[in-house]
Amino acid sequence: MSSLVWLITGCSSGFGEQFVRSILARGDKIIATSRKLEKLKHLEQAGAAVLQLDVTDSQENLRNTIAKAISIYGRVDVLVNNAAYIAIGTWEDLEYEDFLAQFETNVFGTIKVTRALLPHLRDRRTGTIVCIGSRSGWSGDPGVGAYSGTKFALEGIVESLWRETTPLGIKTLLIEPGRFRTKLLSAENLKATVSAIPDYADMSRTLMGHLASEDQAQQGDPVKHVEIVLDLVRQEGVACDKAIPFRLPLGVDSFDDIKAKCEETLELLKEWEAVIRSTNYEDKNQ
């Protein structure tokens, strides 16, 4: 495959930073973006083009930013919607504004950046859009409802995008990572609200302790995650001579949790099939 031009959101750390390093190692071109340009200096020194991009910016400003990105190399072949964070707190402890901010970054940011680039990909009848979902898009864990909600939302809107744009030559990948050793759970990235409500206090303290102990102790290796995504886009390595799926979980915990959810759903459908299928209008003339 010839050299590709990648545009990645959220490159200051974690998966985003690793995408930049792995892409450069394969000889592709990369436009690394972040809300704060100074956090990308080390990646610029490594050979990446860098651009300030805040996914919560207005649609008009993001169109202008994407136009700048396209002008750097004359095209963008691959977009990776990676920017995200986790808001921790129960339904009652998080304010409406907390939910809104979570969706503004994790969902509406993905929508706006993708919409800004889509005309370019559509005109060229080629390109790949990668969206980073989560195992949390399959399982709504207590205290993580806002984050899970954003990842559930991505499952639906990105699948719709895939169906809309596949006939136009645009590929879409939804990656569903489990727990990987990034900085997603770091104090810098995690926005946590400890419950002030006695009924939730024990659960909240337990969750906070679990997240603190899990930070930098997750099983998943982000380098392996990123290398697999690059293989999928470039159709090489583990993806050589394989049909590329739209949706792919990555990580042992993602596999186990999604498998359990599917089995649970199939069992429910089997047990309640007669009730579920009993809701049609009855033809009283027969």
Rank of each mutant, 00 (worst) to 15 (best):
E267D: 13
D283L: 12
Q45I: 05
V80I: 13
S195A: 06
S71V: 00
N280R: 14
H210S: 10
Y147E: 00
P167E: 10
T165V: 15
V275L: 13
W91H: 12
Q59F: 06
I276T: 14
A201W: 05
P249Y: 10
T172S: 11
W91F: 15
S186Q: 02
V50R: 06
L24D: 05
Q59I: 04
L37V: 13
D283P: 02
S71C: 02
E164Q: 09
Q59T: 09
T33R: 06
L121M: 14
V80E: 01
E60I: 09
K29D: 13
G140K: 03
L185G: 00
E104D: 15
D141M: 12
T165W: 11
G209H: 04
C240L: 15
W162Q: 13
N61I: 04
Q59P: 11
R205I: 03
L174A: 05
S58G: 10
R205W: 00
K284Y: 12
T9P: 07
R163C: 08
T56E: 14
C240T: 12
L207Q: 08
G169N: 01
P119Y: 07
A87L: 02
V50D: 10
N81P: 03
S254H: 01
F152D: 05
L266M: 15
A67W: 06
A48I: 03
L266I: 07
R124H: 12
T206P: 00
Y85F: 12
S12Q: 04
G16Q: 05
L173G: 04
Q59H: 10
Y96C: 03
G10M: 02
M203D: 12
Q286E: 10
C11H: 02
R21I: 08
E38T: 10
A187T: 10
I31Q: 08
L40P: 09
G149F: 02
V144N: 09
W162D: 14
V80M: 05
W91V: 15
K224L: 10
W6A: 07
G251Q: 04
K261D: 09
R26E: 14
T56D: 10
L117C: 06
W91C: 13
F255I: 11
C11Y: 02
R75I: 09
W6M: 08
L117S: 10
I175C: 05
V252Q: 11
L211H: 03
A116W: 08
I72W: 08
R179H: 09
Y281L: 14
R115Q: 15
V20S: 01
L118K: 01
I23G: 07
R205G: 00
S160T: 14
H210P: 00
G127Q: 08
L79C: 04
D202R: 11
T279A: 14
D241A: 14
N285W: 11
T9S: 13
S213T: 09
R122S: 06
I72M: 10
